[in-house]
């Protein structure tokens, strides 16, 4: 009994150490993050002083410093969100590729869909208004086109419907 208890205790202690070790390794990033890891985050940030240049491709000295900063933060175990947060705090929201959806910035995301939906609605309403019941024009489907530009060339009844349509379409082009 005693032995079993002791074994359990050892096992527990070993487990805790192991877990702690595992947690420690999981927490501490590799000592020097690779260029790719740095660039992945830098790509999502914009150079605060150049015009519309993502940080990963910006060739200036200042940008190199910022990439080094990201590298350092990564090696200290910062998460991507923390790094972004830091950059926003330091250099303003302009470093983000998109404005955060808060306050006035909501408009960025809300206005275009609203305008597009309104446009779609208007177009649909207008088209519905233009559609005439087919019965009204079915009697003379070919001569009812506007400006008298229909089939008025006086040809024989077309043998092949598709050819006829094609001919008609090609011909109406003046």
């Amino acid at each position: 009994m005693n032995r079993i208890l002791r074994f359990a205790l050892y096992a527990l202690a070993f487990g805790i150490v192991l877990a702690g070790f595992w947690a420690a390794t999981a927490h501490a990033q590799s000592p020097t993050p690779t260029d790719d890891e740095v660039n992945r985050i830098a790509h999502q940030l914009y150079c605060p002083v150049c015009e519309n240049t993502p940080l990963d491709v910006c060739p200036t000295e200042a940008c190199r410093q910022w990439r080094d900063l990201i590298r350092q933060q990564l090696s200290e175990g910062w998460t991507e969100a923390q790094i972004k947060q830091y950059f926003v705090q330091q250099y303003g929201v302009r470093v983000l590729a998109e404005p955060p959806a808060s306050g006035l910035n909501w408009l960025v995301y809300v206005l275009p869909p609203l305008i597009i939906l309104a446009g779609a609605f208007l177009l649909f309403r207008a088209m519905r208004g233009w559609i005439k019941p087919p019965a009204a024009s079915a009697l003379s489907p070919l001569s009812s086109s506007p400006n008298g530009r229909g089939m008025s060339e006086g040809e024989d009844a077309p043998k092949d419907e598709y050819v006829a349509r094609l001919e008609e379409e090609l011909k109406k082009r003046k």
Partner: peptide
């Protein structure tokens, strides 16, 4: 809207924003 919004944002909040590729 993406091009004009930064000017609008500057006007109303004084904040410079980037509207970039993800958008």
């Amino acid at each position: 809207w993406g091009v004009v919004f930064p000017i609008v944002s500057q006007l109303f909040t004084g904040q410079t924003v980037t509207v970039g590729p993800p958008f």
